[in-house]
Design a protein around this nucleic acid. Sequence first.
DNA 1: ATAGATATCTAGATCGATCTAAAGGCTGAA
DNA 2: TTCAGCCTTTAGATCGATCTAGATATCTAT
Lengths: 344, 344
Amino acid sequence: MLASSPPRVTLLDIASDAGVSRATVSLVLRNVPSVAPATRKRVLQSINRLRYVYHRGAASLRSQRSHAIGLIVSDITNPFFAEIIVAIEDWLGSAGLVTILGNTSENLAKQQRLLRSMSEYPADGILICPTQGSEKTGLPTGGRLPPIVAFTRPMDGVDYAGTDNVTGSELAVEHLVGLGHRRIAFIGGPAQLTSAQQRFSGYRRGLEKHALEYRKELFVEQLPTRQGGYHALISALQLSPAPTAAVCFNDVVAFGAIEALRGRGKEPGRDFSIVGFNNIADARAGSLTTIDTSPAKLGETAADLLLNRIRDPGSPLRQVILSPRLVVRESTGKLQHDSNESNQ
Amino acid sequence: MLASSPPRVTLLDIASDAGVSRATVSLVLRNVPSVAPATRKRVLQSINRLRYVYHRGAASLRSQRSHAIGLIVSDITNPFFAEIIVAIEDWLGSAGLVTILGNTSENLAKQQRLLRSMSEYPADGILICPTQGSEKTGLPTGGRLPPIVAFTRPMDGVDYAGTDNVTGSELAVEHLVGLGHRRIAFIGGPAQLTSAQQRFSGYRRGLEKHALEYRKELFVEQLPTRQGGYHALISALQLSPAPTAAVCFNDVVAFGAIEALRGRGKEPGRDFSIVGFNNIADARAGSLTTIDTSPAKLGETAADLLLNRIRDPGSPLRQVILSPRLVVRESTGKLQHDSNESNQ
DNA sequence: ATAGATATCTAGATCGATCTAAAGGCTGAA
DNA sequence: TTCAGCCTTTAGATCGATCTAGATATCTAT
C-alpha cells in the first residue's frame, strides 16, 4: 500500500501565492537581475513559506543542460582514484554540477553500460579513466555521446589529462642511482596498461642515462595492488644477484612491497629502497619516498578540460600532461653494504 | 562559438520512421508485453537505424521516478567506505538505478548542500553515512526530502543499516585475552562518533567479562586514520606498564599502529598484538587480524532498505544490525614474555 | 504631448518522454 | 447478425520547469 505523498509544490503554486506569473518565479530562481527587488522579495518569501523544492529534472529538460557530469573510474578502492574523485566532485560541486559516479572494476562491458546510462541521463559530459585495453576500442558506436574527457589513461579521440609517467620513473631511478643503487627493479603494473608502459620506459631511460644495464628479470609484472606488490618483491628478492631497490608502479604496490620486506626482517630505506608513484595521502603517513603526480590537481585539470569542451564542443582536441615531482621520505636510503657485490 | 549539434532523435522520429505512434514506441522501450512482435521488431529496427538515445530525464519528469539514488559518504578515501560504495553502486546498478555520489569530508554544511542538491535532482532516495555529530541535528528542515536510509552511523528518524559494534570489539578483546594478553589498549576513533562509542563500550564489556581492570590511559583517542593509529600506538607504548595488545577503531588505524610498531623494531603478532576492525581488502593482504563487518553486505543491506522504503514510504522504521565476525590472521599472537610483568 | 528608451513582467509554446482513456480490429459465443 | 471480450494501438493531456517574443508601465527628451 503506497502512502500517497502530498502533491509537489511547483512554480505555479509559488506564482499564485506571490501574485506573479510562473515566468517571474523562474527568473527569481535563476537570479536573473531584471526582477524588481520588491517582487523578488515577495517571491522568495512564498518559496520559503511553501517549502518549495526546485526540480532540476524539469529544468534540464527544457534548458537542455542537466548540470550532471558522469565520472567513470576503474577502481574506487584504489586510493589514487579515490583522491581524484574527491577532487573532481569538489571542483564540479563548486561549479554547481552534480557528479554521477560509476565504477567499472576494469570491466569493459560495465564501462559500456555506464557510458550508455550516463548518456541517457543525459549527463552534460563524462570524465572517464578507461578500463585496461579500452583505450583504442574505446567508445561505443551506438548513439550520440556527450563530451568526454579521459584522465590518467588516454583514449582515442577525446581530450586527455594525464601525467608525464616517463619522466616520473626516470626521476625515481635517478634518485636511487644517486643513493648508490645499481640493481634496481621495476615492480607491479600490468604491461597492457599505457601508464605502466610509460613508467617502464622511463625506468629504462633512467637506467640508460647512467649506463646501467637493463635486465629483464628486474621487471616484475604484477597486479597493481598491495598484494601484487607483496608478491613482486618476494620474487625480486629471490633473484641472484638480488636488486637493492625498486621503483613501484604505484604507492599501493609500494606498500605491498614494504610489507614483504618487513616480513623478511628488512627495513625499507636501510636494507632496501622503495620508491612509490602518485603520492597518495597514505604515502606521507607511511614515510614513502614517491613520485608525486598530484591526483587532486589531475582531477581538477580533467574537470576543467571537460567544462571547456562542453562550452565549445568544436574546439581542437587537447591534452594536458602534468609534470611529476620526486618526494623523498624514509623508504629510500644510501646503499649500505651490497652483499651481492662480491659475487659478481 | 558553439558548434550546433545535430538535433536529438526523439520518440517522434522513431514513431514516424516505424509508422507507429509515439505511445507505441514508448511501450517498446519499456518492454511492455502488449506490443505485437512484428511491431516491436519494426520499432527496434528504427531505433537502431536512427541511433536513438533514450532520454531518462524526460521519462522521469512524467513518470515521477528518476531512477537515481543519492549516496552520501563522509570520506571516500577511507577504504571501508570505498568498498561500501562499490557494493552499493553494483547492487543498485543491477536494479537499473544510477548512483549519484557525494562526499562530505565530515563537513556538515557540505552534507546539507548535498542533501539539498540530491532532493532537487530529484533522487528517488538517499543513502547516507551521516557526518560526525549530525546524527541528531540531522535532516535539514527545508523542503521535502526523498526517502532516506542511514548506514554505518544511525540518524534520527530514518531507517538504518549498521554493525553490532559492541559485540565486535568484545570479540576482539576475548581473542586477545585468550592469547594471554592482559593489558589491552583501545586506540583511534573520535569519542563523538557513535560507532567509536559502541566499539569502546564493547571493549570495556570484554574486559569486565574477564575481570580485567579498565584503565583510562589505555583508551587513546585519535583521528581514525593511518596517521592517527601511528601516533596512538606511540603514545600507548610510552605508558608504564605498556599494553601488549591493542584493539583498533578500524583497519586503517591498525595499519598505522603496525607502522609505528615496526618503526620501533617490533613485529606485530610476535611483540605486540593488533586487532583491526572492518576487514577491508588490504587487511587480508596485510595479514591483519580483524573484526569482519562485511562492508559490501552492509552496503547491499542499506540499499535494500532504501528500495523497500521507496516502495512503501509509510512502513514503520527499520533497523538492520549485522553481526561481526572475528578473522584471525598474523597480527595477533600469544603473549610471549611480558617485560613489565615483574614491575607490577 | 508624444515618441522612444528602459525596466519589469507574462502568455503560451516547448523540452521528450509517460499516462489515461478509449478506439479499432478481430474472435468466438449467443 | 450482433455483441462481449481480447489484443493492439493511439490521441492528447501531462510532468515542471525554461524560453521567446511581446506586453505593460514608467521615465526621458524633445
